[in-house]
Write a protein that binds this DNA or RNA. Sequence first.
RNA 1: GCCCGGGUGGCGAAACCGGUAGACGCAGCGGGCUUAAAACCCGCAGCCGAAAGGCGUGCCGGUUCGAAUCCGGCCCCGGGCACCA
Length: 869
Amino acid sequence: MQAQYQPKTLEPAVQKEWADTKAFVAPDASAKPKYYNVGMLPYPSGKLHMGHVRNYSINDALAHFLRMKGFNVLQPMGWDAFGLPAENAAMANGVPPAKWTWENIAYMKRQLQSLGFAIDWTREVATCSPDYYRWNQWFFLRMREKGIAYRKTGTVNWDPVDQTVLANEQVIDGKGWRTGATVEKREIPMWYLRITQYADELVDALDGLAWPEQVKQMQRNWIGRSYGVEFTLPYAEETARRMNDGNKGLKVYTTRADTIMGITFAAVAAEHPLAAEAAKGNPALAAFIEECRKGGVMEADLATMEKKGMPTGLFVLHPFTRKPVEVWVGNYVLMGYGEGAVMAVPGHDERDFAFAKKYGLAITQVIDVDGQPYSTDAWQEWYEAPGVCVNSGKFDGMAQPAAINAVAADLGVMGLGEKRKQFRLRDWGISRQRYWGTPIPMILCPACGDVPVPDDQLPVVLPEDLVPDGSGSPLAKSPAFYQCQCPQCGGDARRETDTMDTFVDSSWYFFRYTCPGAKAMVDARADYWMPMDQYIGGIEHAILHLLYARFWTKAMRDMGLVKVDEPFRNLLTQGMVLNHIFSRRTDKGGIAYFAPEEVEVKADTEGKIASVALRADGSPVDYGGIGTMSKSKRNGVDPQDLIDRYGADTARLYVMFASPPTDTILWSDTSVEGSFRFLKRLWKLVHDHLEAGGPVAGRAPGEAAKELKDLRFKLHRTIDKVGDDYGRRLQFNTAIAAVMELLNALTDVKDASPAARAVAQEVLENAVLLLSPVVPHVTTVLWAELRPGTRLLDQPWPEVDKAALVQDTVELVLQVNGKLRGHVAVPATASKEEIEKAALASEAAVKFMEGKPAKKVVVVPGRLVNIVV
RNA sequence: GCCCGGGUGGCGAAACCGGUAGACGCAGCGGGCUUAAAACCCGCAGCCGAAAGGCGUGCCGGUUCGAAUCCGGCCCCGGGCACCA
């Protein structure tokens, strides 16, 4: 056996053996139970970053562990290959997105392979390949037939200079990222998917999922099912005349119908028809509405901006008092939300309260909570709490649920409203005015209207040679793409040039992995592998991706394509890998990012970052705090340096040992040395053991010395713990630490007897098995040395020897008044009374009780004794 | 702003169900080996204190024989907010 641990030669050799034996190709049928294990597919941004290494190292450890536990494991991989970065790269370098993407895929695949992940590459999926996205198109048409896909207008960010739609990411402080122009809202027609039709099931089914509670809670809140009252505020006479829209009044929705008598005004969105009507002949209002168009559509921006409003001069009537209520235009009311109009009860809604204070509108208390004194001077938390109606006429004295029922009933009698369930969740807008995505398979015919592309003409292939220039969609400027004949009438028509949201691609790729080459979207093989047993990916996907994939699965089920209700049985959301962000505003008002290695950081005396300068020319750079590693912020760390220097096993061991998978981690490579050192140590231990007399077969007979018994105790406790950490806790740092402790204990035993050598062999073999899911290369080689003629890949997970875990005495912690004062050793079988007696008689107890009698003695078996005096 | 997490030595962390705070590792310090360096090996190490001991898990308060862990309030950091993926 080689004396030196040499990952550079060892790892490629082991990888070649795996490839030659097709070690990780999973059969679609097996006598073993199946285990389908997927990491969220990466976007091919160019290079892997540490977040990927972390993600797939966790997946891979589980894949190996479950294989050793006797499962037929499938671990596939693919590429989320459509998206904006390819277009940005194309604009920067003039390279078509397709070429850039395929090159990135080739490079990143080599990186994944060099990390030695146990991936079944025969099932690889790239979402930009026509073989894949044709099924996006096919399924879109099926959804359209069922009314799940439909068209309506939606609001987008519009850059008036580049004449193009911007992604939220491309809007910085309300300005376009390239032009610096103030972004505007613009209404355009878009395709939507009726996810709200599944809202009830999406929220109810969460209860049955073995997902982190945190993620389920986020999804529940996001879907936001509420039971409220929808009602109409009737138009006042002049308003009805001017609106002349066939509606009786302004429709609003509220979950707080019990506060209805506190309405002092109403508010509508700037895009609301009532606002438009009111603006006629009111230049100030028209200017305000125009003002509201400025800025993007991001919810976070809308929620934090200053609440502004203006009266319309139009009135609606309070449904009960018939008193006029003035309608205001508010910049915080969203048109895409409910009806685009809200009732305002400043007495009991914090946002309305602030608005009323600002514009001097009336504030009325209509809810009493335990008689607390109400004042309009300042908002208090309890104003929003449920209570009892006051100043509410016939509703006075009613508690919240009764009041809501009574209000709804009365509104019903008047024909003005009723109870209604509502969701915060909105339908999924999938149209993108971009090039690098799945073409939406529709044709717009001047004679026939919207006409679907016939199935036999799918896929609508995306041309791969276009280069976007930042102003509008290249497809919309490419007659070769959009000119076509109407499939119905044969006349000249125009192809839809919008492409699909890339979340469509990632909503069902895990089905496609299960049936590569299927002639349909999926085939029966999906029924074998699905539902997925373990899904692992970043916490940033807790809502959107996971919700869309759940919806898509249910839509496929209802179309009879698959049998599962839910795609992901178990979910592990890994924490983000963060790094420092350095940026600078450009002279155009945009923003430019710099990689950490491009800047020089100076810290103040407390170690905080004080100043940053560009290495190239010393010019100042802004410190942007810390954030997720991403290509757009240029703060990703390429693992290749680590792999080149230390090998794949060290890189994997390092990311797994650094923290529990769900923790957010701030990137630092200072302790990589330690992981490398540990593998060298493991190698040396095996080497020295074998040099001293070769492998030992079997256990030594007879009663072992205490030292060896203790070592075997430690070994089997470690096997138990590591199995629990991998299988139940999905926590790897503690498992690795436990094996480190075990090897430290082995080193402490200085005994070269045959009995000791036999125990050492047992310890080393098991340590190799326990570590093999994390560091499969080095353990493959070490196993072959320890057990010549056998393969690590054929070994089952080790069994705990229960006999080795039997102990004669246990040491308990001794506390006096809750403070640690010593230890007391008792027989493992001692009763509570015997433990108490031994504790009270101990030297430490006598000393710290200072002669006082024990008031109480708490005994926790196997743990501690606490004497209270 | 709203929803969801997190905060423990110089650093990454451990403590799984309320029971020894800091396992394991990094960096550091002392020693060994070496002509020297690297590598490797042994030892020390939360803070204050000579010691006895005291203090200590973001901050303030509470429950408990006992709190990093449970409860109330606050501060800071991260993720998401529907066109980044």
